[in-house]
């Protein structure tokens, strides 16, 4: 059942996994689970967030993350109980800009002067797209970091998972570098922006979309896929999240739907299971199952639409207890079992 560590999975060439999705679909949960799933034995995975929400810290119940790569958790163990590690990075544009200036331009004193003049503020809040350029630029740096490079103490990553802005903004977010490259016709910013775009458009990147089986998110997912393709960005898989429990077999579901459940049989079964049973209880349970069947039917319709997109899809269940680190590991195992990692 469980596959072995080096078993092929669906995205062997991908170094940068971008995870997007409509609000409310649980994209941050999926990004975290994917990072854990990719961190098999001996591998380092970086999980980045860029929206200032500190969602990673909350999910893993640690202090708010600084602009610094921090060890977050062990990956989901393989069948031999071995795991790699997940590091986390909270990218904020101000820090990214100062680091960028220091790194590429050795702007020690001038960097501070820029800050004093409000340039940092301008660049990260008002100047068109600069914010997103800085955020993707930092992600690019982590993905491209050479092994044994200038800074020997720096960790290099086998994979980077980016908890990205929502589907409605994803093309704009990933495409800003091409826009900036358009604005800046020459110069270092242009060549940097071009390099970032080259990575984002290459087979080393995959943009995964998270959805739930409801009409609007599924519609937004297929719009998103179309827009990503039009922008030349590589579409990854679709992760269908928060799937309802499949406690009823197809035949049981059909009985519930057709109203052919035999109440006497249910009554005697409940009695056998030592439940204090009466007709009302049986009726209530069947009625709840009917509500469930209606929703399952709607889910199936949406599932067919997702399948029609023709990209690899993965499903994750809705966990009644909510999301904590244990739940994330459970989801990571499920993603691995389905070949996403």
């Amino acid at each position: 059942m469980t596959a072995n560590v080096d078993r092929p999975h669906d995205w062997p060439k991908v170094r940068l996994h971008v995870v997007t999705g409509k609000g409310g679909t649980g994209k941050s949960t999926v990004a975290a689970a994917l990072a854990l799933a990719l961190a098999t034995s001996g591998r380092n995975v970086l999980l980045c967030e860029v929206e200032g929400r500190q969602g990673i810290a909350r999910m893993f119940d640690v202090d708010p993350l600084p602009y610094e790569e921090r060890r977050l958790a062990k990956g989901a163990p393989d069948e031999n109980g071995r795991a790699g590690q997940v590091l986390a990075l909270h990218i904020d544009p101000e820090s990214a800009l100062l680091e960028y200036l220091a790194m590429y331009y050795k702007l020690g004193r001038a960097g501070k002067a820029l800050d004093r003049f409000g340039v940092i503020d301008f660049a990260t809040t008002i100047a068109p797209g600069v914010r997103d350029v800085l955020l993707t630029g930092k992600v690019y740096e982590a993905v491209q970091r050479p092994r044994g490079g200038r800074h020997k103490e720096q960790i290099t990553y086998d994979a980077v998972v980016l908890d990205a802005p929502p589907t409605g903004r994803i093309c704009q977010f990933l495409g800003v570098n091409s826009e900036l490259a358009g604005l800046a016709k020459v110069g270092p910013v242009k060549s940097q922006a071009d390099k970032v775009m080259e990575l984002l458009r290459s087979p080393r990147t995959a943009v995964h979309l998270v959805t739930i089986l409801e009409e609007m998110p599924v519609q937004e997912t297929s719009d998103g896929i179309r827009e990503l393709r039009a922008a030349g960005l590589p579409v990854g898989g679709v992760v269908v999240n928060l799937v309802r429990p499949q406690a009823l077999s197809p035949s049981a579901l059909a009985q519930v739907r057709d109203d052919t459940v035999d109440p006497t049989a249910v009554t005697s079964e409940l009695a056998r299971a030592r439940v204090d049973v009466d007709a009302e209880l049986v009726e209530s349970l069947v009625a709840e199952a009917r509500d469930h069947a209606v929703r399952r039917h709607l889910e199936d319709e949406q599932r067919a639409l997702v399948a029609a997109e023709g990209v690899p899809t993965y499903e994750l269940p809705r966990l009644a207890g909510g999301i904590d680190q244990g739940a994330l590991v459970e989801l990571a195992q499920l993603l691995r079992r389905q070949g996403m990692a």
């Binding site: 009823l248 009985q255 709840e288 199952a289 469930h292």
Partner: peptide
């Protein structure tokens, strides 16, 4: 494959 067990599990999920 008990149908009744399925009904009970659905109920438990809903309550939780």
């Amino acid at each position: 494959s008990s149908l009744t067990a399925g009904l009970l599990r659905l109920h438990a999920d809903r309550v939780r």
